[in-house]
Design a protein around this nucleic acid. Structure first.
Length: 149
DNA sequence: TCCATGCGCGGCC
DNA sequence: GGCCGCGCAGTGG
């Protein structure tokens, strides 16, 4: 069993701002303090964070290509090896099968508050690819689109 | 520059 | 299922 929550948490809604990962964790909107993905291979992804860390990411109003996990140098953040189908990446495949909603957070700069995390809303994982990224190494990419509420 | 901290997962019972 | 220990990680003080 689990207490993982898919969909909106508590009273939090799209547009809400959080000042830190710790705040997101306490609110249970995105529990892990550092990991960008919250979820398991068995249950799927319940939330993720876009932090402008992966060069192969793409974020528009209509869709997100979220780069999978791993293969990066811890210091430089550059891809240095091929990504593997780790449990965390496999969690996206589970979500794609289940169609469960994924909470999406994005690190943005607010005029008043500086660096904050904005709740973008609920998305659905629609596709996955394993292809060569900008670095030349193989990366996982997951296509997400906003859910129609 | 260092490292805490929450969590996923495997091992074991 | 529950407990424990390990190692990771889209931070952040």
């Amino acid at each position: 069993m689990t207490n993982r929550v898919f969909g909106h948490v508590s009273h939090y809604r799209p547009g809400d701002l959080f000042s830190s990962r710790a705040e997101l964790s306490v609110a249970r909107v995105h529990a892990p303090l550092r990991s960008g993905v919250s979820g398991t291979q068995a249950e799927g992804v319940d939330s993720l964070v876009l932090a402008d860390q992966y060069e192969d990411d793409l974020f528009t109003e209509e869709l997100i290509w979220y780069t999978g996990h791993g293969g990066r140098d811890a210091k430089t953040g550059k891809q240095v090896t091929d990504q593997l189908l780790t449990c965390r990446n496999a969690a996206f495949l589970t979500s794609r099968e289940s169609g469960q909603p994924v909470r999406v957070l994005q690190k943005v700069t607010d005029e008043v508050r500086g660096q904050v995390y904005r709740y973008e809303g609920l998305y659905t994982v629609l596709d996955s690819r394993y292809e060569q990224g900008k670095s030349g190494f193989m990366v996982w990419k997951f296509l997400l689109k906003p859910r129609k509420s």
